[in-house]
Design a protein around this nucleic acid. Structure first.
Length: 808
RNA sequence: GCCCGGGUGGUGGAAUUGGUAUACACGCACGACUUAAAAUCGUGUCCCUCUGGGAUGCGGGUUCGAUUCCCGCCCCGGGCACCA
């Protein structure tokens, strides 16, 4: 037996053996319960992995090994999300075709992952850029098209002038391109859009049944942004035209003294012949169109607007004639793009004060505080008591709302309405490196889906894959590819040249792992029934409103067309906290603070890296890498290694047995709850205890090795074989604990006097209050506090604490 | 502004159906081994005016007892936001 722990030799040896014996290959086996444990698959960047990337992968590796040892059939796969802008930009920068770059980067990533000893079943590897994969991404798109969920639109969209492509709402952060930080412009562009809004209600309500972190669920609720209110109709005087207005505060309708349209509102064009100051109006609309969205939506900006002179609307409740304004703070994309304005909204209030538009009060907080509001000295935005509201006077806001809707509904002037912030998903990109959208445009038939038999529509080779910037993808230049026949009428057709966004392939990849070689279906329904849903999904919280919404939408659609058996893809989600550099900053080439896992594997070993990353702190919390800290886990593994030399057939003390069984219990529970840090500290406690013994019982040692195996698979496998066992640890049974060995016969209980701990006594389990009291009375360290005092209360909380209250 | 999560030693952190706060690890100090160093092992390590007192962001409250529950704040991280 070699005495030094040579991690390099041991890890290389077992990596090779595991691979040769194919022990991580997963087969369907309906006799066993399944466990599907999934990582968010990476985009294979050119920089390779840094030490933060594997944190989530280590966790799923531990959980899946643990589940396997507990008799589950596990699915733990890995693949590559390789389409999209970053891959393409990397390729352009390095003057290399994206396909080649992706191949190289995948190779590098895979090597790095293999060094860490993961139990991935590589026979199920997938790659979103593989035509046999994106065939099914295209297939799903066609199904959506057939169901009317994919449509063409010409509305102005977010355009990133640097990435030279349109973007979805989700890709814009604070008015900037999420990818490159460039300020996004509005650009009218023909594009493909998916009707994710049709799923808004289900996406929202089903959030409740997910075992996900509350923060992510909350983000999704906010992003979907459901609000309930009413739609009211303001008719335009002397015309057939009317303005539908969405409001959540119909209780303020009696103070609606004017209405405001978004400057983009198309109704304005129909009103042009009535508008007396059309020049001014046009100028305002023009000015607004030039302001970037980001600036337009800052609260600090002073309110501006222009009245549409000559246009009069009728308030449906008061029947009063009210002026019509346009103002840029009214957003065309939200609600109906029009609001009724009153003294109970700060923005309307400010605008009215500035331009001397008449205001009226219809809500007051209560009778005591009504004076200031009524004098219009202040804008009251809250809910309160109605005044000046005919029969609704003296009702509360909440009481009045349904009643006002009811009344106006009878006149056909209002109805209940619901609104969402969620916008439909802008799905086309004017770039090369994505799935071609499988549509053929025909002059006669319009857009026609490519027949299923002709899928995949392969991404053609091009000379230049750089973006054109014109709003056309580079594919538009390949006429032999673009020009084709219409599948419907056989006439001349042109292929759609836009490609899909990066999020397309990742919206359903988890299904493909269940059946990655199927050429006749996206996934076999029987296999899907067995493996789905994903039991544990681990990844970064930054995907809360992008990937995790898109995937849920995509999945619900597949459920609706009968392609899958369940209506949610991920049962349990756990997010992984980032690992920052030791300076607290994000690891980045720019700061020169990147730590490469390969280096740690070389110097300290993969097992040490694994244990350290799990020991650093709570799994879902961010932490900074510590050069000093990483030696702790290394010392721990060395201690475990050295215990080999003390193996004996003799039994250890009851005290050791107790710690051992406690450890089995704690490690089992902590893996299930993903509290890896405390599982490791408990194993450290056991190891420290064993170290102090003269010998270590062989079975006890074996138990420790089994518990540690999911965390540190290499070193434990080596110890296992050195102990004379031939079966791989991952195929062995997880240890069970014996509660009777954990339970204490004697308990140490604290004694509090007036709330302060004054001593600790030892009692036998099951002692009653009198017995306990007797012991207390014979404990000098406690009794000295009781001299010359009266005991007014003696409380014994069984097996927990004694609390004595005394007075002079 | 609204919503979600968090605040504990020099550092990462542990402990919550209300019951002995500071487990485990790092760092540091001292000691053993060594010609010496590294490694390893051992001891100590919340603070103070230390027979005692104080401390889980701050201020109150409930309780025999509060890191845990309630009320009012402060700070940090995240989501949403001229959203009608």
């Amino acid at each position: 037996m070699s005495d030094t722990y040579d991690h390099k030799e041991i890890e290389a040896k077992w990596r090779k053996k595991w691979q040769e014996d194919g022990i991580y290959k997963t087969e369907e086996d309906s006799s066993k319960p399944k466990y599907y444990c999934l990582d968010m698959f990476p985009y294979p960047s050119g920089d390779g992995l840094h030490v933060g990337h594997p944190k989530g992968y280590i966790a799923t590796d531990i959980v899946s090994r643990y589940k396997k040892m507990n008799g589950f059939n596990i699915l733990h796969p890995m693949g590559w999300d390789a389409f999209g802008l970053p891959a393409e930009n990397y390729a352009i920068k390095n003057k290399i075709h994206p396909r080649i770059a992706v191949e190289q980067n995948i190779e590098r990533f895979k090597k790095q992952l293999e060094l860490l000893g993961f139990n991935y079943d590589w026979s199920r590897e997938i790659n979103t850029t593989d035509p046999s994969y994106y065939k099914w991404t295209q297939w799903a798109f066609i199904k959506m098209f057939e169901k009317g969920l994919a449509y063409e639109s010409n509305e102005p969209i977010n355009w990133c002038p640097s990435c030279k492509t349109g973007l979805a709402n989700e890709d814009v952060e604070d008015g900037k391109c999420e990818r490159c930080g460039t300020v996004v412009e509005k650009k009218p562009l023909r594009q493909w859009v998916l009707k994710i809004r049709e799923y808004a209600d289900r996406l929202l309500s089903d959030v409740e049944k997910l075992d996900w972190p509350e923060s992510i669920k909350e983000s999704q609720r906010n992003w979907i942004g459901k609000s309930e209110g009413a739609e009211v109709i303001f008719k335009i005087k002397d015309s057939d035209l009317e303005v539908p207005i969405y409001t959540t505060r119909i209780d303020t309708i009696y103070s609606g003294t004017f209405i405001i349209l978004a400057p983009e509102h198309p109704l304005i064009d129909s009103l042009m012949d009535k508008i007396e100051n059309s020049e001014l109006v046009e100028q305002y609309r023009n000015d607004v169109s030039k302001i970037e969205d980001k600036d337009r939506t800052t609260l600090e900006k002073e309110k501006t607007g222009v009245e549409l002179k000559g246009v009069i609307a009728i308030n449906p409740a008061t029947k009063e004639e009210v002026p019509v304004w346009i103002a840029d703070f009214v957003l065309f994309q939200y609600g109906t793009g029009a609001v009724f304005a009153d003294a109970h909204d700060q923005r309307d209030f400010d605008l009215a004060k500035k331009y001397n538009i008449p205001l009226k009060v219809s809500i007051v907080p209560n009778n005591e505080e009504r004076e200031d509001v009524e004098k219009l000295n202040t804008c009251f935005e809250g809910e309160g008591i109605l005044i000046n509201s005919e029969e609704f006077d003296s009702l509360s806001s909440a009481e009045a709302r349904p009643k006002i809707i009811e009344k106006l509904e009878k006149e056909g002037l209002a109805k209940k309405a619901t609104n969402y912030k969620l916008r439909d998903w802008v799905f086309s990109r004017q770039r090369y490196w994505g799935e071609p959208i499988p549509i053929i445009h025909c002059q006669k038939c319009g857009p026609v889906a490519v027949p299923e038999a002709d899928l995949p529509v392969k991404l053609p080779e091009v000379d230049s894959y750089e973006p054109t910037g014109t709003g056309e993808s580079p594919l538009a230049n390949i006429s032999e590819w673009v020009n084709t026949k219409c599948p419907k009428c056989g006439g001349e057709g042109k292929r759609e040249t836009n490609t899909m966004p990066q999020w397309a392939g990742s919206s359903w990849y988890y299904l493909r792992f269940e059946d990655n070689k199927n050429d006749s279906a996206l996934v076999d329904k029987e296999k899907e029934k067995y493996w789905s849903s994903v039991d544990l999904y681990v990844g970064g919280a930054e995907h809360a409103t992008r990937h995790l919404i898109y995937a849920r939408f995509w999945h619900k659609f597949l459920f609706d067309i009968g392609a899958v058996n369940y209506d949610e893809p991920f049962t349990k989600l756990q997010h992984v906290g980032l690992i920052n550099a030791s300076d607290g900053r994000k690891m980045s080439k720019r700061w020169g603070n990147v730590i490469n896992p390969d280096d740690i594997v070389e110097t300290l070993g993969a097992d040490t890296l694994r244990v350290y990353e799990m020991f650093m702190g709570p799994f879902d919390q961010g932490v900074s890498w510590s050069e000093d800290g990483v030696v702790g886990p290394r010392r721990f593994l060395e201690k475990v290694w050295k215990l080999k030399n003390k193996i004996s057939e003799e039994n250890n003390s009851d005290e050791i047995e107790k710690i051992l069984h406690k450890t089995i219990k704690k490690v089992s529970e902590d893996i299930s709850s993903m509290s890896f840090n405390t599982a490791i500290s408990q194993m450290m406690i056991l190891t420290n205890a064993l170290e102090k013994e003269d010998f270590v019982n062989k079975e006890n040692y074996k138990t420790l090795i089994l518990l540690l195996a999911p965390f540190a698979p290499h070193i434990t496998e080596e110890i296992n074989i050195q102990m004379g066992n031939t079966e791989y640890l991952c195929n062995q049974k997880w240890p069970e604990y014996d509660l009777s060995k954990i339970e204490e016969k004697n308990l140490k209980i604290g004694v509090q006097i007036n709330g302060k701990l004054r001593g600790v006594i030892e009692i036998e389990k099951g002692f009653n209050e009198d017995q306990v009291k007797k012991i207390v009375e014979n404990t000098p360290e406690v009794v000295r506090w009781l001299e010359k005092k009266t005991i007014s209360k003696f409380i014994y909380i069984p097996e927990k604490v004694i609390s004595i209250v005394i007075s002079e």
